[in-house]
Each structure stands twice: as C-alpha cells, then as structure tokens.
C-alpha cells in the first residue's frame, strides 16, 4: 500500500464511532448493536450459519451477470463507437434505459425469465451491459486521433489500427465501465434476491433476518456485503493499475 498506515485511519475512526454510539446508548441497542456483537455474530454465521453458501451463491450470480455483460457490452460498445451514426441514432434509447432504475424493470424480467435465477442474472447483466457499452463506445469515440493518424501513416490497415491502437486507446475507459458495472451487478443481485424466487443468497438472508427481527444478523450481512463490494472494487482497481498502467499519465 502506497499510503501506509493512514489508509486504516478512516475505517478505524468509523469503527470507534460505531462502538461509542452503541456503548453510550446514543441509539437504542435494539436498532444498533455494537461492532463487537455484530462481528461475533458474523463469525458465528460464517462458521455454523451457512452464510458462506449465501455469499458464494450471490457471487456466482454476480459473476454470471458480469460475464454476460462483458461479452455483450464490449463488442457492441466497440461497434457503436466506431460507427458514429449508429451510435447517435441509438443514443437516446441507451440513455433512456440507463436512466431506468434496473430494479424497476425487474418485474418485467420475472415475467419473461421466470422467478428463479435467470431473471436476477438477466436484469443485472442488462443494466451492467449498458454501462460497459456506454463507456466502451465513449472510449472509442473520444480517443485521440493523433495515434490513429500516425499508425495510418505507417501503413497500418484498418484492422491493424484497431488491433494495435484504437482498442488500447479505449481500454482505460472500458475498465472504468467494468468497475462500475461489477459494483452495480452486486447491488442488483442482492436487491433482487430480496424479492422472490430464491432460498439462499445474501439479499435473501438479509430480508429473512429483518422479518424475524434478528437485527444483529442483519447488520452482520450488511457488513459482509459491504466488505465483498469493497474487495471486488479493490481487485478491479488493482487490475486496472496493472493492465492500463498508462492511464492518466
């Protein structure tokens, strides 16, 4: 870590504040169990309560949704980015669908894909693919022309220009899209798990705990979901630094 110990200061302070608020009973202990109680609940759930299975199932759904989104979003984005006219004619439609909260169209997906996993994965990959597509297309459209020109001048064919220049040129933008999309996938999967059609998954577990007023369990799941989301993001940032090392330099 570049920043050394200072990065731990924020989380440390947040934990301390949480601890103090709970300990001093500034909030009713029923609504806000302290960090120690929550973390020990989380550990108990992890050992005997099966939330590892829940987490893995949620991650599997996120992974599938993300992979589908990548497989659709990147090629379509590259295509739309290179043919400006097609993009312009579709821009409003893309922006419209991007603006609908994905969970608002979940009922439609349930009608089409059924109440089980397919509809959850489909709605998450739909929303994520739009994000990846959007970033990819913009990456292609706003790439600097100078390198393309230089390559053309060296005699590069259209395919070579794409393979050696344009693709790399928009890779940093693609990564921004990927990172946003994977976080969104997690959000959508967890939310849709709360609705219908599954007996496992972090969202399902969360809503179950809420029904039975297992508030400590609820906080434990929220904490776990947060940690998972954070780690996924961190992995993508790391990957981004490795792969598109030139970005922003």
């Amino acid at each position: 870590m570049k920043h050394g110990k200072t990065v731990l200061l924020g989380p440390g302070l947040a934990l301390l504040a949480w601890y103090l608020i709970a300990e001093l009973r500034l909030v009713d202990a029923f609504f806000l169990p302290g960090p120690i109680a929550t973390i020990s609940e989380l550990l108990e759930l992890a050992v005997g309560g099966g939330i590892i299975t829940d987490a893995l199932l949620t991650l599997e759904r996120v992974f599938l949704a993300f992979v589908i989104a990548v497989l659709v979003g990147i090629p379509v984005g590259l295509f739309l980015g290179t043919s400006r006219r097609v993009y312009e004619s579709l821009e409003m439609v893309i922006d419209f669908f991007r603006s609908i909260p994905a969970t608002a169209i979940f009922p439609l997906f349930v009608v089409v894909f059924g109440i089980e996993d397919s509809s959850k994965i489909a709605v998450a990959s739909f929303a994520s693919a739009l994000i990846i597509l959007f970033h990819t297309a913009h990456g292609v459209m706003h790439a600097k022309k100078s390198r393309t020109l230089a390559a053309r001048l060296m005699g590069a064919t259209k395919l070579q220009v794409f393979r050696f220049v344009s693709f790399w040129e928009c890779l940093p933008q693609i990564f921004v899209g990927l990172r946003t999309a994977v976080s969104l996938s997690l959000v959508i999967v967890v939310v849709t798990e709360m609705f219908i059609g599954t007996y496992a998954g972090l969202g399902r577990r969360l809503i179950d705990f809420q029904y039975v007023y297992n508030i400590e369990g609820m906080y434990a799941i929220i904490l776990l979901t947060g940690i998972i989301g954070y780690l996924i993001n961190a992995v993508f940032i790391l990957l981004e630094r490795r792969v598109v090392h030139w970005s922003g330099k």
Binding site: R147, L149, A151, M154, G155, F164, L171
Partner: peptide, 23 residues
Amino acid sequence: NYRDSLLPWRNVYDNVAFPLELQ
C-alpha cells in the same frame, strides 16, 4: 506533438519496433 503519437501501452522497444511489426 510527438507525445501524442507514441503508444503509451508499449514500452520503448515495442514503440520503435511498431512500424516494422506493421510491415
């Protein structure tokens, strides 16, 4: 604008080699 015509995803060697690779 030499800076904008070099390929930042390729190292020095691969930048020099680039036009030859195209051939």
